[in-house]
Design a protein around this nucleic acid. Structure first.
Lengths: 195, 195
DNA sequence: CGGCGATCATGATCAGAATCATGATCGCAA
DNA sequence: TTGCGATCATGATTCTGATCATGATCGCCG
């Protein structure tokens, strides 16, 4: 038998509240305007939230990988506000929003852990907003590398910063020249002195 | 007697857990490495979190205004990691972290309200990120006006979008010309068909 | 009322990012 | 191994927004 652990705080929920999923790149986990009845915890792969801007452009809201969750807002709204799409083959858990709401009022430990998870998410999103308000491409890329590292491809990284792939690539090259970051390989970079 | 309401969910806490504060621009609400024993709910003004970068520059981590909270990390860590500084005259409440932790495990309604508040903040910040990734100044301003309206001055609005004041003003003028938004007065605009 | 600082509007110029174009490199699969 | 599509790197050009400069308008207070 294979045991696959589900990440905190959802390991405290009854087994009936969670369902395993696996998917391929391009699969849609949920769509905007669909009933928001579950959130998603990722074990492997990369998922992204995308939304169409009024002009019809696809805009990335967030990208998440192993250990992260998407769709927390579904707990208190009745419809999703964005599409959740797999960027690569991925697996994880769908967690019933109703079970989470129930556990919040009956399980103090779960409530504490849930608040902690959400507080971290707020902090991360605020940080992303501040980074995106940095004008210079090099400074923005450096700040993002220090804060989050480079989770996926260079193109996806550029998207998440509101930069074109070319501007991001050039900024990386400049930062390497100035000794602020190191190049791990083609399209893979890391801030100096970080894991 | 003057009654000043404290925002949900903190209105459910005992009175001893909250303390009113007012401060001037530049005042420091808490410092990095100080004991993290409270979080801050803002009634008026703008507060920012700043940290020193490896180069020694002051880097803004987050900014928050009326209705938002700062310092949620105090719930789970024993020291602050950033300075909290007032960018303008501000007022609000200091809320004891210990009281929040206690209420989370003893008061199911409070736990629900707290999670709801945080989930909404996550959604709002994600929306901000989405809007900031819109390239065109006019499209970005239009999206922000539709999503949030224009809360304060034009300059502050421009800042929150990562635009210069001049670019924002020009974008507003262009949107008015194209009939997408209406001008309520000098420096005050609104998306067509919104309150 | 008149003065003054803050905010907004707008023109001119410039820097830098987007875009277009092209070649290099990688990963995967036949 | 070879071929091919995806990704990355980089040059050339365009164009948008930042910046600088200036004037207009507003709110406030004496």
């Amino acid at each position: 038998m294979i045991l696959i652990m589900i990440a905190a705080p959802f390991d405290q929920l009854p087994a009936a509240a969670v369902a395993r999923f696996t998917c391929d790149a391009g699969d849609i986990l949920f769509r905007a305007d669909a009933p928001a009845d579950h959130l998603i915890a990722i074990d492997a792969g990369q998922l992204v939230l995308v939304r169409l801007s009024p002009e019809g452009n696809r805009v990335m809201i967030a990208q998440a990988g192993p250990g992260q969750t998407l769709g927390e807002a579904s707990l208190f709204t009745d419809r999703y506000h964005y599409d959740c799409v797999a960027r690569s083959p991925a697996s994880g858990w769908r967690i019933a929003a109703s079970a989470i709401r129930a556990a919040l009022v009956t399980d103090p430990d779960f409530a504490l852990a849930m608040v902690q998870t959400l507080a971290r998410q707020v902090r991360t999103e605020r940080l992303r907003c501040e980074i995106m308000s940095i004008r210079s491409a090099e400074a923005r890329v450096l700040a993002a590398l220090r804060a989050f590292g480079q989770p996926g491809t260079l193109t996806a990284f550029a998207d998440s910063l509101g930069l074109s792939q070319e501007a991001c690539s050039r900024a990386m090259a400049g930062l390497v020249r100035h000794g602020r970051i190191e190049r791990l390989g083609r399209g893979r970079y890391r801030a100096i002195g970080q894991g």
